[in-house]
Every structure is written in C-alpha cells, then in structure tokens.
C-alpha cells in the first residue's frame, strides 16, 4: 500500500507528515525539536514522562502518543509550554533522589541534560526524599530505584536472548516501580546489562564494574549538550 501524506503545521511551519505517525515522529522527520524522555527510537510510545507536551487548539496533549491528523495546527515552542515542560522536569527531580554529584550517569543523563536545556537552577517544588531501595543482587546490573523516573524504557526495550521479558513494573501512580525477573539470573547477561544501562535515560540501571568510565569533559553531554 502506498504511503499517504497529510499536511500539519508546527509553530507556523507546514509539514507533510506520514499518516499514522505520531506528532513527535513527524516533527523529528522534519528537524523540528520536541523534547522527549520516555520515547526511545523504535520502541512503542508509552506517554509516561509527558515532556513532549504540545498544544493543539486549546488542549495540551503528549506528542508521542497523539497521531497526526489532517490540518492539525500544533504549537511547540511557546513560553507556556516551556514553563510546563520545565515544571515536569522539576517534578521528576523532586520525586526521586537525584544526587547528580554521586551518580555514575551524570554527564550522560538525559534528564539532567533536559534540565540544563530548560535552565533549571532549583526545582520549584519541595523535595520528597522518598525512601527507596537499591537492588544489587544481580551479577551484572545494579538497580538504583532512587534515580528511576518510571519511563518504562527498560520494560519495553530490554528482552532476554530468547525474547522473554526481563523487566516489568508493579503498583500504580507514585508507587509504581520497575521490577526484574530474578528467577533466571542467566537471562541478564553482561551484554543485556549494558543494553539496559544504555536504554535507561537516567542512572537507575547501572552495569556493574564500569562506573565513571568516561572522565568529566568527555561524557555524552559534555561534548554535545545544553549545559
């Protein structure tokens, strides 16, 4: 079947989007930057972080889970949306225990880089200082729940070699947390642990014995970041 295109407008710029695409995908195809956090390459969208909020008419909707439709007029880069996104990022910071100075992922962290991009000096909300656990029983992977933002990238993107799922989540709302299938420790090989660490936008999944590999100044966002 031939791919059909439909016309949408983002911040006044007309774009021909593929039918069935999400707003974020269509924007990305045309070099329009909509910030994302839980979105990852080819994974199905989850809409968990809400950082990609855009405005259509009077409504604010997540860009990753909203498909484009004909004649859609989208606002992306406005002061209101910037403030809303900054607020969301700040909420993620106060909800967990994000201690950047001690985190192995600092400098390679997508949440941190977004906060730099949005000019966060201090979150406007009080810190919750939740009491969360660190799971260190697995041979290759450390799970730091204090830093988890529940984006569910690992649940969607990391599978064992035979295809079965390793990560899952339990509970709902503010208590939601990622869990790992510990019944088969061999499923989580060193290679899979590396994949999990790479897919995690923050420092919640850390491959053991590789911390602080890149020196300050050479990390991902030191070289190519917004800080």
């Amino acid at each position: 079947m031939e791919q059909s295109y439909i016309q949408i407008t983002i911040d006044g710029r007309e774009i021909m989007a593929k039918e069935g695409q999400s707003i974020v995908e269509a924007a990305r195809d045309h070099g329009v930057v909509i910030p994302t956090l839980c979105d990852f390459k080819s994974l199905p969208p989850a809409g968990t972080c809400r950082v990609c909020m855009v405005q259509i008419g009077g409504r604010i909707v997540p860009g990753c889970t909203t498909p484009v439709s004909f004649g859609m007029v989208i606002l992306n880069d406005t002061d209101d949306l910037r403030n809303l996104r900054k607020g969301l990022i700040e909420m993620l910071f106060v909800e967990g225990n994000h201690m950047c100075p001690t985190c192995e992922k600092s400098g390679n962290c997508e949440l941190q880089n977004l906060a730099y991009q949005y000019g966060m000096l201090v979150p406007r909300f009080p810190f919750l200082f939740p009491h969360r656990k660190i799971e260190s029983h697995l041979p290759h992977l450390l799970i730091e729940h204090n830093r988890c933002i529940q984006c569910l990238r690992c649940v969607r993107g990391v599978k064992a070699k035979d295809g079965h799922e390793i990560f899952g989540f339990i509970q709902r709302g503010i208590n939601i947390r990622v869990t790992i299938d510990s019944t088969d420790p061999d499923a989580l090989t060193e290679e899979t642990a590396q994949k999990a660490m790479d897919i995690c936008p923050v420092g919640a999944l850390i491959k053991k014995k590789t911390g602080f590999k890149l020196p300050i100044g050479k990390r991902r966002y030191d070289v190519n970041g917004n800080g």
């Binding site: 225990n97 994000h98 201690m99 950047c100 100075p101 001690t102 000096l121 201090v122 810190f127 200082f129 939740p130 009491h131």
Partner: peptide, 18 residues
C-alpha cells in the same frame, strides 16, 4: 545565594534522609 548542590538539594548529606 544558595551555592552548590548541598545548599540547593541537600546533596550528599541528604542520603541520610529517611
């Protein structure tokens, strides 16, 4: 002015919170 992560977020000492 709050200077540094400890003044702003509690920082490393805040690891005892909880």
């Amino acid at each position: 002015i709050s200077v540094g992560q400890c003044a702003i977020t509690g920082g490393l000492p805040a690891m005892r919170n909880g």
